[in-house]
Design a binder for these strands. Structure first.
Lengths: 189, 189
DNA sequence: GGCGTACTATTCCGGGCGGAATAGATGTCC
DNA sequence: GGACATCTATTCCGCCCGGAATAGTACGCC
């Protein structure tokens, strides 16, 4: 039972809702804006589906053709697939693993830049984060207006909370850099 | 001027401190525990160094040999390399880009699991996060005792702040799930 | 009615990443 | 002093990802 990738989890999850061919999965995921949550490209999706079939997580249930359109291969999730899906979700929920975000790398090497530039750049970052939070709030309002339960958009709330925390940390750090409370060891020019 | 990868940034940054051969870079990065911040493997490092040389960001300055040990090729960063390094750091500092962490994926598909199991798993997650925070605090105490300036470990403080924010969000979400304030649409068993 | 654009469904391919392998040199332990 | 582990320095290999290509079809527009 190999650990699924993030794309693998969302792909298997849509197949768990009903038999489908890969292109239909792709369209459905796009319609649901899953590409905001997971890296979604046709190439990766088809490769993932191939792997699922090889691992017995899904089974081919037929080949359709509409007119002279390309053939489409319809797949169905297997019991092993459902088990792997649940196991992977549980694993991702229950254990925190380091995913090596790139901002810590940048701030770890920020001493290569002068204090003034770092302050300016962090200011730009916090502005772009607050803009994103604004988009999220607008989208959450629309969702609430349509009566969607919070549980169905928990991931949006999570992402918002993380962005707010980062913006707050940046604000505090910028102000400490500005007052000199946080001495900067970098180049002066 | 291609955008550097996170490993590329740290590798170029150590070369900016002085001429070195790749293995020395690797050892130095390990000694500094850079592998906690960036994905570090010999294979990736050597490939990155090759790319730097091809792009003119570094230049070969000689080949040494000690006894009958394998030859080692010493590289030096070029002005173009320093420029690329500073540009990449600025880019990573100033702009927030979505890096698709996997927890939102998991929570977006968590409705495949019953509420009780989700609560249990989120509890495990928050425990593992608080444990990590404990390690960070211990390591920060040691750092403070050695008189290292906060600016040199800003990335650790950032990571700690993000972990605390996630733990708080999890605590709040778990309690809302427990009281039923947050209705769960998943399977009952 | 013909021209261009967008859709359907999938394949292909270059490149990076990371774990494993290599192979000689040196240290360690009894 | 012989065996075994560890260090030094690098290469190799397979896998996966993601952007681009493909090729035929329907549709809109004048």
């Amino acid at each position: 039972m190999p650990q699924l990738t993030p794309l693998g989890v969302t792909a298997l999850a849509v197949l768990a809702e009903g038999d489908m061919h890969p292109y239909e999965m792709y369209q459905l995921m796009l319609a649901r804006k899953e590409d905001r949550v997971v890296r979604l490209s046709p190439g990766s999706l088809y490769r993932a589906v191939e792997r699922f079939a090889a691992d017995g997580l899904i089974a081919e249930v037929g080949v359709e053709r509409e007119g002279n359109r390309p053939e489409r291969t319809v797949y169905s999730i297997t019991p092993a697939g459902r088990a792997a899906l649940r196991a992977s979700i549980a694993e991702m929920l229950g254990r925190h693993v380091n995913e090596f975000p790139e901002f810590p790398v940048a701030i770890g090497e920020a001493h290569n830049l002068p204090a003034g530039e770092v302050i300016r750049l962090l200011g730009e970052r916090v502005a772009s984060i607050r803009e994103t939070i604004g988009f999220i709030d607008a989208s959450l309002e629309g969702i609430a207006a349509r009566g969607v339960a919070t549980a169905h958009v928990l991931n949006v709330h999570y992402t918002r909370a993380m962005l707010v925390a980062e913006a707050d940390w940046l604000d505090s750090t910028i102000s400490q850099l500005g007052t000199g409370a946080l001495a900067w060891p970098g180049p002066s020019n």
